[in-house]
């Protein structure tokens, strides 16, 4: 019975995962598929596999940070936090706005904190919010350097257009894999992070391999993201990239590369430990928005090209979405928690 109830409550997280797959996968291979450089089926298959691998094997770092923001300690509460974020994302995606799942979940957690009268860890919140600013800027910087590097290389390599096309296709497939891995690693926290504290799952031993209860949770989340990629991402692909700036396949590759690197930097405990081991500054492990990263990269390249091709109205609309997403999500969560507790008599916090 507990398992069935758990699965029922988990369904909102799985729905959020599905929304994330439907929405954010377009950032990884949208332009490549849109420009017919790679087939949707190939891209979706690769992304589905790697998003699960990233979630299971590298998803814990960002999830811990989200847990510090608000330890959602009741399953019904976690259900509503994830559902509020999912509904916000779904509603905004349906309205054609590119939204951030990261901001939706942060907004929902704050909504839960407010409802449960739990203190919000302002240090963690400021770390997360500052990452929203750092992420697109860093992505833009990486994109500009990569853009100039590739431009220089193309100028001097005198590579034939057709061979260049083959390299770009291969590159797009590889980057779809890396991008999906980074997305899984960074964004699984958005999908399953709120369930970690209240999950009744136990560690499982398969042969000599121990799969932790968190990894099982992340595997389920990864499967939901994959389902979103396969079933719905084709639709969102139409709105990504080219609506903001005309992109060649090489620029699309640069955008996805920069986005993947940034998402991975914000998720990799290995890189964080490595940098800190040498006394170097490191990035916090927080879930960041892949949409924000993509926009940062596109603006960076747009500015490098003279800033003439950027559709600033769309940029402004997206920035407005970033502000409204957490706010709407927090309000939806707060009201829904009240409803859940008082109508269904469920404990939404302890």
């Amino acid at each position: 019975m507990t398992e069935i109830l758990f699965l029922f409550f988990l369904s909102s997280g799985l729905f959020l995962g599905w929304s994330l797959g439907a929405n954010d996968a377009a950032n990884i291979f949208g332009t490549a598929v849109g420009s017919r450089m790679i087939k949707f089926r190939t891209a979706a298959l690769i992304a589905s596999v790697f998003v699960i691998l990233g979630a299971v094997f590298a998803g814990s770092g960002a999830s811990q940070t989200l847990g510090e923001l608000g330890k959602v300690n009741a399953l019904a509460g976690a259900f509503m936090v994830a559902l509020s974020a999912a509904l916000t994302v779904y509603w905004m995606v349906s309205s054609g706005v590119l939204v951030s799942t990261s901001q939706a979940i942060v907004g929902a957690i704050i909504g839960w904190n407010l409802y449960a009268a739990k203190p919000t860890d302002w240090f963690t919140l400021s770390t997360i919010v500052s990452s929203w600013v750092t992420c697109p800027i860093l992505c833009g910087i990486i994109a500009v350097f990569t853009y100039y590097g590739i431009k220089h290389w193309l100028k001097h390599s005198k590579i034939h257009l057709l061979r260049q096309d083959s390299y770009v296709r291969t590159g797009l497939i590889l980057i779809a894999a890396f991008g999906a891995y980074a997305l899984g690693a960074n964004n699984i926290a958005n999908v399953m992070g709120v369930f970690v504290a209240s999950s009744p799952l136990q560690d499982v031993q398969v042969g000599g391999l121990i799969i932790s209860k968190t990894q099982i949770l992340f595997l389920l989340g990864g499967l939901a993201i994959s389902a979103g990629i396969i079933t719905y991402s084709q639709k969102t692909i139409q709105t990504v990239g080219n609506s903001l700036m005309e992109m060649t396949p090489i620029v699309a590759w640069i955008v996805v590369f920069s986005q993947s690197v940034v998402l991975y930097l914000f998720a990799s405990e290995g890189i964080k430990n490595f940098l800190e081991g040498y006394g170097l500054p490191s990035l916090p492990l927080v879930p960041v928005s892949s949409s924000q990263a993509v926009i940062g990269a596109i603006i960076g390249i747009g500015l490098a090209k003279g800033g003439k091709n950027i559709n600033w109205t769309i940029v402004a609309r997206i920035i407005a979405g970033w502000v409204f997403t957490p706010a709407i999500s927090a309000i939806v969560c707060f009201i829904s928690l009240f409803f859940l507790e008082n109508v269904f008599n469920l404990a939404v916090y302890q």
């Binding site: 034939h160 057709l162 061979r163 096309d165 083959s166 296709r169 291969t170």
Partner: peptide, 15 residues
């Protein structure tokens, strides 16, 4: 991928 590179090379030569 090998096939793609071979096809590209063949067309390069035609062009």
């Amino acid at each position: 991928k090998i096939n793609l590179f071979a096809k590209a090379k063949a067309l390069e030569s035609k062009i």
